[in-house]
Amino acid sequence: MGSEILVGIGEFRVAKGAVLKTIGLGSCVGIALYDPKLRLGGLAHVMLPQSGNGTKRSAKYADHAVEMMTEAMERLGSDRKRIVAKMAGGAQIFKHMTMDMLRIGDRNAEAIRTILRDYGIRIVSEDLGGDEGRTVYFFTNDGRMLVKYSRGGELWI
């Protein structure tokens, strides 16, 4: 197994062989892109569904994250047609919630589906929603994603 690389909130990393990890996803979503031929993968920890007009390019927005990650993979020789996606997160952590604007998990998930469709990237598996935080590991040597839940339990997607 390769080394472990931590992806911070609002960041992305692309690697070949390494395990990409992002911790404590609540409403945020971890998007993984994978090129099975090159065994090259990327993981982004996105916070917001959509960039606004004229905002600086940043992986904190789902649309920018997909764009930046795809470009980075293409620079390493990947072909967009081969890239597939997996994603996890977008939970609703608050049991009791008074501020509607905090209901962002669902919006993130919806926006990402649309963006990936626009890019022609197929989602091969996903684990979205629910009410539990997640930490995800993306194994770039074979494209598997391990989701660990805050209350224990794990799932391979």
């Binding site: 911790i23 404590g24 608050f94 935080g133």
Partner: peptide, 11 residues
Amino acid sequence: GRDFAIAVIDA
């Protein structure tokens, strides 16, 4: 909410 400290605050 009751969860990872970061997951509660990420919204």
